[in-house]
Amino acid sequence: MKFPVHTSPYGGLPNNVTRVMGEVLLALVPGIIALVYYFGWGVLINIVIAVITALAAEAGILRLRKRPVKPSLTDLSATVTAVLLAIALPPLLPWWMTILGVLFAIVMVKHLYGGLGYNPFNPAMAAYVLLLVSFPVAMTQWLPPQMLNEHPLTFTQTLAAIFGGGLPHDLTWDAITSATPLDAMREQLKMNKTISEIAQNPMWGDFGARGWEWVGNWFLLGGLFLLWRRIITWHIPFAMIAGLLLSSGLFWLFDAESMPFPGFHLFSGGMILGAFFIATDPVTASTTPKGRLIYGFLIGVTVFIIRSWGGYPDAVAFAVLLMNMAAPTIDYYTQPRVFGFRGKDNA
């Protein structure tokens, strides 16, 4: 009898890229629901625009590169990139900016470097930074969280704002948008206010900015799910948070009136999202265990430095991109001890 031949191991393999990416998307759901709850329909509309654009861009460029389209579309990697970018964008961002960002992420950052697995930079973060430096005003016009928002927009009003730039006639952009808490903290510190004065503002909640802190918690839940499902390991999130808390804690201990409390750093902006979902992007992160700790820790420290003294408050994106560049070097110098080589646990 004759049989077909192929190489070992034999058996249905337990894992695949679609499952990995699918579970990342699933883990994002609680945080996305929280974002929609606090910041309105715009979040969801951004996600839809981004995903459609990403899939179309992925399909188009794969065709141009003469690569099979279907396996790459169904691996969900483009979808993950799109969603990660979309939830980092202000809820009322004009539609074409979202599309521009996604196109940049998929076409330039991902495919021009060789596609999935070959890109040295995190596509979502690179696109975020592109939009931030190109459209600084639009990118910093956030909505206040739901409990502070005096003029919540309906679904159709949101659609109109995103696609037509029009607001209901009794409202102006200044009236409905506000700076992000990070931005506000920066501006007010610049005006030489003390932390205790700044904390009087109703935008601050129990341990971070109101609304934001809870978004962070829900993303944390998703992150723990990824840890439990072993999609990510603890190294990068732990080290990144440790780096941020240690550096911000140190300065806070010296000067609690001009340096925000470490908890504020942790639960504001994209820190939790970044620690569990963005810095852990395997393609662009360090891959050795020790390397992941160094990589995460340096991102955490860099986030603190950029937030405290940098030109933009949106530090996670910059810190991740900077460390993306360092990842290959970190990997090279942190190779684990190979079995049978002398080391400290094999004396």
Partner: peptide, 25 residues
């Protein structure tokens, strides 16, 4: 023993490293 799937690009997830009994990369 199904026929092997077409391989996708490596996403550098490091699962192989976690599984390697020789502690290789």
């Amino acid at each position: 023993a199904p026929d092997p799937d077409k391989a996708m690009p490596c996403i550098r997830c490091g699962k192989c490293m976690d599984a390697c009994p020789a502690q290789l990369l």
